[in-house]
Amino acid sequence: MTHIHLEAIEKSYGQTKVLNDCSLEVARGEVMTLLGPSGCGKTTLLRTLAGFVRQDHGRVVVGGVEISHLDPNRRSVGYVFQNYALFPHLSVADNVAYGLKVRRRPAGEIRERVAKALQLVALDGLGARYPAQLSGGQQQRVAIARVLVLEPEVLLLDEPFNALDAKLRLTMQIELRKLIDRVGITSIFVTHDQSEAMMLSDKVAVMRAGRIEQVAAPLEIYDRPVNDYVASFIGRANVLSVEVRDGVVASAPEVVTNRADGPARLIVRPENLAIAGADACWSGRILFASAQGPSIEYEVEAGLPEPLRLVVPRQAGEAALPAGSAVGVRIVDPGACIVIGGGSGV
């Protein structure tokens, strides 16, 4: 069931169109990630949903009710800011109580709900501290408790892990996903980190220059990207200019396609390429090799505009082939390759 519906949202600042016909549906209880490079409009789209940005065109519908023109304080949409935006002059408990006080709840109820919310994020006992006395991870949890205590319909998080160091980030990502599942709240994340998107979300919306390019489950985006942009943004990909002739790719005949003859682009993941002998599609020379425990990475110069990238499983005791070796490269699973239209590939 659709819970959040963004319909053809457009927003311009002067001459610059930051959101261009953005439509998105999020089901109840689903976790969606807006993924894209900085400046692609993902934060603006999130801010439109919260009401901090007013769209020029389009509608915002939450739970079947249009909220397009409501002020931010009239929307039941919890927003966790990138730097958490905790009130530095209020204690942790007062930060969490802020929204309840605005809603004029009785003091006893406020105390109870604040205590419950702090318990939910495992911060019980820290209510008297001030934000400056907390670690980054704790501050993030206060920010989450501060919106969850109001039981909003929707939870929005703007790059919530940016301010955390790498190690803590992973722990917090797992904790947050568990918390969201426990509460069962429809959530939208914004991130530029594809592994974060893969880990956290049920669905990913990949954005570029104010447009949503593809919305799908993370693995589907990885396996079936709609274009080379999505393919290179999620994971790594070799994007090759090829020629389709008689239903197969001319340079790699085992790749079958239903595309019409003519120029096309072939998208192959690095792990779908292998070092080969006689049955090679391409032959060339190793430019760079690096053994990394479970796998070996190669870059192979094969007379293409860009070197081919390979990630090959590594056996115990196996060393990488030395740079400069002449090798062949073949496709492991032709069925996992993607052929898309247009000739101007990389």
Binding site: A50, G51, F52, D71, P72, N73, V77, G78, Y79, F81, N83, A85, L86, F87, Y98, G99, V102, R103, R146, V147, L150
Partner: peptide, 18 residues
């Protein structure tokens, strides 16, 4: 000043004056 604090307050339900 950090304007996001005001946005946070609005998000938590406070009007402009508050």
């Amino acid at each position: 000043r950090d304007r996001r604090l005001e946005e946070a307050a609005r998000n938590l339900g406070a009007g402009r004056v508050r």
